[in-house]
Each structure stands twice: as C-alpha cells, then as structure tokens.
Design a protein around this nucleic acid. Structure first.
Lengths: 165, 165
DNA sequence: CGCTTCTTTCAGAAATTTGTGAAGTTAAGG
DNA sequence: CCTTAACTTCACAAATTTCTGAAAGAAGCG
C-alpha cells in the first residue's frame, strides 16, 4: 500500500466487497443482493446508480434491478430519484440498514404463530406441547429484548458518534 | 378435532412439521435439516431414531445422515447412543437449541473481522470508513448485549418454568 | 472372528435457483 | 407528441444444490 490515507484502489475495494458479501451470503442472503449491498456500503457516497453498480460488479442491469428490489423490501437500502434525470440512486442509509437487520419482527411473529399452532395441534399438556410453549415464551422474550436493546444502542451511539446521520 | 387433550394424529403433526420447517427454511436453513429439526421438536420424547425420521419424513437414510450432521454441528441437536444397540437417537435438548440460535458468536466475529478489514482497506478517515466503523461498533455492542440477554432469559425462565430440563 | 445391523460416504440424476439478453414499460425533454 | 434514456419483466440457459441408491465402513453379538 503506497498511500496510507484514504487508500481507495479498485482492487482492495473489490476485495472487501466480495469478502463482506460472502459473509452475508453465509448468513442467508442471496448472492446478488449481498454483493450490491456490500458495494454500496463501501462507497464514499453511500449511494450508487444502477450503472455504477453494474460496472463495478460486472453484472447486468437486470441483476441490479432484482437485487435492489430485494434490498429495498428489506429496508436495507432506499431509492432516490435525483429530480430531473430518470436515473435512480440506491442508498444505504447510515444506520438504517442494521436497524433493519434487527427488524426481524415479522420473522419472529411468524415463528411464534407457527409454534402456537404447534402447541394447539399437539396439545398443551403433552411433553412436546410443553417444550414448544417454552420455546414460544423464549421468542416472545427475545422480541421485547431486542426493542430495548436497540434503544440502548441509540443512546450508546449518540455518546460515541454524536448522532451524525 | 375430536380429542381435546393430547391430540396426536399423524396428519396434524405432519402439518405442523412442514409449516414450521417452512419458516426455518425461509430464515435460511436448508430444507432437510429444517424438516428433521421440526420433526424432533414435535416428538414427545424430543428424540427420534434415524429410521423413525426416515419414515415420518419419507426420506432416505442418507438424507437423515446429512441433515443430522448439520444440526449437530450447529448444536441444535445432540446424538445419543443407547448403549448396546448401534442405533442412534437424535435429541433436541429442551432449551439448548434456541441457546444455539443466539450463539451466532462465530458469525458475528467473522462479520466484525470483515468490517475491520474494510475499514483498513478504505481508510478510517474516508466517509465509507467512518460508516463502517460505526457498523462495527454496532456489532460489538450487539455481541455483548446478547450475552446479557440470555442471562436475563435464564432467570425469567427459572421463575416461569421452574428450571425443568 | 465373522455376521448382522446401522450409519456414512459418494457419484450422479433431478430439481431448483440464478443471471442474462431481449423485449416491454414509463417518463423526461425536446 | 415523439424520441430517448432509464428501469423492469420475462423466458431460457447455465450453474448450483439437493436427494437418492448403492457401496463401504464401524461396532455389537453370537
């Protein structure tokens, strides 16, 4: 590395993008969304256009479109329209994205629903039913805890980073 | 439903198994491990043999073997050998499994490593570097919080379920 | 020590998922 | 209005993943 401040050669950026994307994939995200997201995260703007993404990642516009749609649904990126041009920019909103990570509320709710159903089918007084009741209680507990945790994080963040957007 | 206490007809059990497995799949687990796990969870023993699993789920011994290996690696089930027979039983250990769910420590560590690398590649003083530094701080925070949360859960559980195994 | 019973491994068929090119759609700007 | 620049959708080819049958590998038990 010849330049210690703000080294930003395409190669090392790309290396990071791919390695971070790999982690996301391992955690269950699809390949394209993961790569797109990693690319956005490592851009200084925190935002890129469709074309830029396509060029950096060597993927087709169709792939960008699909990946971005997924990320937007998960609230991990937001779409912007620079007024005037029809060009869109996709932005990773500072901290919004990892808040989205913990917003698995919908997921937890579905788990809870499935477990309730399980308790009903199996009978609350069977051993299996009791086991599931406990599991259900665990998820409900986690549910509440996560909300509290995120509140603590916001305080923590405020003091450490001064609440910049 | 004709029998209100302990209704356990194969059909409704199977229905639950598949629907819970579907949730697990959606959350990123592979199909077979998910089904196997759901089957174990809904068994009264909390444990089944390879053959029983194969019969209930209509899958080959090979599929059972593969699925169980995965689940054991994730510490979601443990293997038992009833001394004597060479037959194995796979058990979902009451609460061990959802504790395993939160033991994503290894995962978090890898994310943190990837992000550190990112900060290094991009430069700590670039906008992207700063954004990643904050993200990194978030994961470190979550890391610690989860440990604390699980401790609170154990207390909560004790009072509510009386610490049964 | 060999027979039998269970589990694991492996190669390949089948199914699913993924990414692309091409056509389609929408809206800006002349 | 018509042209053009962008994004999206769709059908298909390619790559990957998943599950199976068959064979091989362990370990109890006579």
């Amino acid at each position: 590395m010849t330049d210690t401040s703000g080294a930003r050669d395409a190669e090392s950026v790309s290396k990071f993008v791919e390695s971070f994307a790999a982690q996301l994939v391992e955690a269950g995200m699809q390949r394209m969304p993961a790569r797109i997201f990693a690319a956005l995260l490592s851009s200084d703007e925190g935002a890129m256009t469709s074309v830029e993404l396509g060029e950096q990642l060597r993927i087709s516009p169709a792939a960008v479109s699909g990946g971005v749609r997924y990320l937007a649904q998960q609230h991990m990126v937001s779409r912007e329209r620079e007024p005037g041009s029809r060009r869109e920019r996709y932005r990773v909103q500072g901290n919004q994205w990892y808040e989205a990570l913990t917003n698995r509320e919908a997921v937890l709710k579905r788990w809870e629903a499935a477990l309730s159903e399980g308790v009903a089918s199996l009978g609350a007084e069977t051993p299996a039913g009791r086991r599931m009741t406990e599991t259900l209680a665990f998820f409900e507990f986690v549910d509440g805890e996560i909300v509290a945790m995120m509140e603590r994080w916001r305080v923590h963040r405020e003091t450490r980073f001064g609440g910049l957007t």
